[in-house]
Write a protein that binds this DNA or RNA. Structure first.
Lengths: 340, 340
DNA sequence: TTGTATGCGTTATCAC
DNA sequence: GTGATAACGCATACAA
């Protein structure tokens, strides 16, 4: 409101709106003189183009939407950092939305972004199937969508993530080498049965002739932190009172692992002496945790950077994104939580 | 693109665009029959109103912008949670932008939000003065701006934060009671000389007849994590090799405190035995830190919730926001890092 | 080199 | 109860 428009400039300078518009957009057919007059006037009266109008006119908003589970998460903030970095180069504005691990919320995020006319969407889907066909129709009818991080869904588009299978396999083997053979795998319900992190875990057991015990897989709902804590605490206590006590925990996500560490501290269970812990995690403060946490690090910033770069490319070429999966490598960072 | 418009609906149903528009907006003068026809057609062809057009027409976007230093920060994510919660009630969409502790970036965030025509802005300013007059002009000419968290700037508007002075005072007194009298205060350059957290710290010393030693105040630039770590490490080593070794550290922000804890661990300095630590902090995993961190907790979610609620109120009444400061109370959470 | 006219998708005023 | 029509701010094809 109360913002000056090209109409105002035109009136003030005795020009037509189109001349003003062209001057502002530095179009060659306008004489340098009038161009300068317009620009000077615009600057001194701090004219700001109304992007809503420009968007409506041009049919594009120069904006991409990003939907993540929750920004309260080091891995995600790092990804977002990468996205922001790329956005400086590509010139896109970024709109961040949170799905809170809820598929309905996710859907309404998508709806909002579409009706706001974003030029493209980056998403780490809550669920490997829930909104996938919806996303597919968005790609067909509205704008390109690129998947990052949670790439184990069936969708014909560009996907950017890490080789989770190999990461999990290596991490599990690390624990086994430390002579931990009763390893609890704590994962997210949303990952489903056949998630690569779980497959990597299982494969490592198999390679070392260790029988997989289904009781040693805990699936948690990430939507509610409190019940998450409760569930993990409950199962740890239960498993420890059973015959074969666990001697290691593999946390499948950032949140799971850090919460687990806190719970173990509360229960006064010594890490790593009683239970070693390793996590698929990116928290910056892993080294300040109690004890410093061994982690499988993902190149989070790269993921974000590549995601937006690829999206920008697809938008530019106006092509429907082709199926293509970029798998980046993980790196294990050994710390005290898995030393013995 | 390829999205259906009211024009398409009008053509398909043999109606005029205005009738369609009115039906969709449930205006009473349209007959129930046609209304239903329109709505049915819209649903089956999944019509989505183009919000860009609506915004242009109505002069409002139903969006508020939020500018924070960085979302990579537990306190901020909690605030954002509060904002989101309130947004469900008020119906506003939220656009989150990051200033990365940089005043230029902050300014361009503001510019972007304005030119996108947001209905209001929530901001935790990078600096107590840098963009304040600019913000003031935004309030006058564009849309209401409400300050949260970093409220020690001179600006006539609604501000929502915590009583930092009292929080810092109480935390310092807690350390003193534990017989720590050589307390290092690590703060952010951006806070300036006269920040309430520092004043609270000083006041506590004064009340206990402890002389304040300027060497025991370390001001860090939060923009770059690496140089932050370096600076803190450097000074800790330096002060410990000097005459009067410090016996406690008060970290003025989340990041400072968690990083400090990590650095102390690396330097093998025992916490709290050699140095006790307390922080102005909200990190969820304080209890999983090494050792569990004593913190002054801020009601982060409440801050966010109140910020958006107040903003929505101001937007609705179309009033220029009046000077008003809401000071919420802090709470100290005692943990191992300050136990002796 | 500059100006006129039109349209982006929607809402709102006014006529019918 | 329904339908022309103008307008929001901007960009552009076309005319001058």
């Amino acid at each position: 409101m109360a913002n000056i428009t090209i109409k105002d400039i035109a009136k003030a300078l005795g020009l037509s709106v189109s001349t003003v518009s062209k001057s502002l957009n530095d179009i060659s057919e306008i004489s340098p003189l009038t161009k300068q007059r317009v620009i000077d006037f615009a600057n001194t009266n701090n004219y700001r183009a109304n992007k809503v109008a420009t968007s409506l006119k041009n049919g594009k908003t120069n904006t991409v939407g990003v939907i993540v589970c929750s920004i309260n998460n080091t891995f995600i903030s790092q990804v977002l950092d990468g996205i922001q970095k790329a956005s400086l180069q590509t010139g896109y504005d970024i709109v961040i939305m949170q799905s809170f691990e809820n598929t309905d919320t996710e859907k309404s995020c998508l709806e909002t972004l579409i009706s706001r006319g974003v030029d493209g969407i980056l998403i780490a889907p809550v669920d490997a199937s829930a909104n996938i066909s919806f996303i597919s129709s968005i790609i067909k009818n509205c704008c390109p969508v690129i998947i990052f991080d949670r790439i184990s869904c069936e969708l014909e588009t560009v996907k950017i993530g890490v080789d989770e299978y190999m990461g999990a396999l290596k991490a599990t083997q690390h624990l086994i080498k430390k002579d931990r053979k009763r390893i609890v795998f704590i994962t997210a319900e949303q990952f489903g049965e056949n998630h690569p992190r779980f497959r990597g875990f299982q494969e490592a057991l198999k390679k070392n002739d260790i029988q997989y015990d289904p009781d040693f897989k805990i699936s948690c709902n990430l939507e509610d932190i409190e019940s998450l804590d409760e569930k993990i605490g409950h199962w740890i206590k239960k498993l420890r009172s059973s015959g074969g006590k666990p001697d290691a925990i593999f946390g499948a996500t950032d949140i799971i692992t850090t919460r687990t560490l806190g719970i173990l501290a509360k229960l006064k269970i010594k890490v790593p002496n009683e239970i070693a812990v390793i996590g698929f995690s990116n928290t910056d403060i892993a080294f300040a945790l109690n004890p410093p946490l061994s982690t499988i690090r993902q190149p989070a910033t790269d993921i974000g950077f590549l995601a937006l770069t690829n999206l920008a490319e697809v938008i530019k070429t106006k092509a429907v994104p082709k199926q293509k999966t970029l798998l980046l490598h993980t790196k294990i960072q050994f710390r005290a939580s898995s030393k013995v």
